[in-house]
Design a binder for these strands. Structure first.
Lengths: 156, 156
DNA sequence: CTCTAAATTGACGTGAACGTAAGAAAGAGT
DNA sequence: ACTCTTTCTTACGTTCACGTCAATTTAGAG
């Protein structure tokens, strides 16, 4: 029961851009570019010229985005729209639950994460359905070809 | 049993590039570009300057390629490699079956198409597996989040 | 305080996949 | 033979998603 570090929700920003880049398998340039186009939020409270500092949360978020990009094959613009939509939904729900005393602070965070996962699952499953559609087409085509082959084999 | 048009395997080339473009949902430029990079074979026996003429087979082939591109999210270079590999396999099998009398002419064609379908199915299913991997990750993550939520709900 | 590795901004470069403009030529219809 | 639409070739332009200098600055180690 010794869990009393005086951090309520400290971001623990300790990673620099090179370290984040290594962990996610991209280059620093890519991270700056993503920030530039608004896909990643600009590191808050940072004087121009000083180093960007990130936390584990930021790394996880970037990994999510990279995986969505690869799996869905979407452009960075579409990815930005997805991210924006997620934020908007999160904000709305936060407002909705505003009146709670505070007992559910962690609850809100988990709830938000659940929302992210849900919307991502929807996208992934939509993509999967598309692929399965094409797969079915191919299987049907194969069936037709095999039928023709049997017919030829019968009278040829 | 009146099936005696004097065409053994006539290509029936009758469509011009604009028509092919409309049917496949791309622009003429795209079709020429695909030919330029060797993704589509150059229309055979055509004097420079004269119009390109295509048949239904060509349209179907282009549709296949476009669908593969979209579903797999591959580059045109990779797509070209896939097409090349298919042709190579087809050529090999043709050589292998060379000694047949000729009774299996249509058989060979169907056989070749079956080969194409098989290799495409493999690619599509590989991609599907990747997506399902990510889907599983998301589902696992959701399960974990829900567990945490229940734990909080119990003592909070 | 110095040294140095890593980061910052700014700018230009790059490859993929086409778009677009221009002038000439082809080919279907009359 | 003539018109009118469509295509042809050539060539330069464009967008996306970063890569690559270059000239500073920053910030952690000694």
């Amino acid at each position: 029961m010794a869990e009393a570090t005086p951090q309520v929700a400290s971001p623990v920003r300790e990673l620099r851009i090179g370290e984040v880049a290594k962990r996610t398998g991209v280059t620093p340039r890519t991270i700056r570019y993503y920030e530039e186009i608004g896909l990643l939020p600009a590191v808050a409270g940072r004087d121009p010229g000083s180093h960007r500092l990130y936390g584990e949360r930021d790394v996880e978020r970037l990994e999510e985005l990279l995986q969505l990009k690869e799996v869905l094959g979407v452009t960075l613009e579409e990815l930005r729209e997805i991210a924006t939509a997620e934020s908007a939904r999160a904000a709305l729900r936060r407002e909705w639950h505003e009146d709670e005393p505070d007992a559910g602070r962690r609850r809100e965070i988990i709830d938000e994460a659940l929302g992210h996962v849900a919307s991502q699952l929807e996208l992934v499953r939509r993509r999967k359905a598309e692929i399965e559609g094409f797969e079915d087409e191919l299987v049907a085509r194969r069936r037709l070809l095999r039928k023709r082959l049997r017919e030829i084999g019968a009278n040829g």
